[in-house]
């Protein structure tokens, strides 16, 4: 399945792009997606534990089961205000 991935804040700099697409086998989780992304973008590796993940507009944990068409966003801790 294909998963659209969006990067925000300095994750865009670390990955060198604002978005990408990853292909994963059915039954994959966000943890699987992150593992694949960290291999492709090693600069993101150091941020692994603090990375926040949203599917659509809701936060999700590493165990979330991805579905075809999911839009995943990766970003560092938020800093509004």
């Amino acid at each position: 399945m294909k998963i659209a991935v969006h990067f925000y804040s300095y994750y865009k700099d670390l990955s060198g792009s604002a978005e990408t697409t990853e292909t994963l086998p059915p039954g994959s989780t966000i943890a699987d997606l992150l593992k694949q992304l960290m291999a492709r973008f090693p600069e993101l590796g150091a941020m692994q534990n603090s990375t926040l993940v949203a599917v659509g507009v809701d936060y999700q944990g590493r165990g979330y089961l991805l579905k075809e068409g999911d839009e995943v966003s990766l970003f560092p801790p938020v800093q509004g205000g």
Binding site: Y8, S9, Y10, L52, A54, Y59, S73, F75, P76, V78, Q79, G80, G81
Partner: peptide, 10 residues
Amino acid sequence: LKRVVPIWKK
């Protein structure tokens, strides 16, 4: 807001 709203600063 500072915990969950996705706004970042540079």
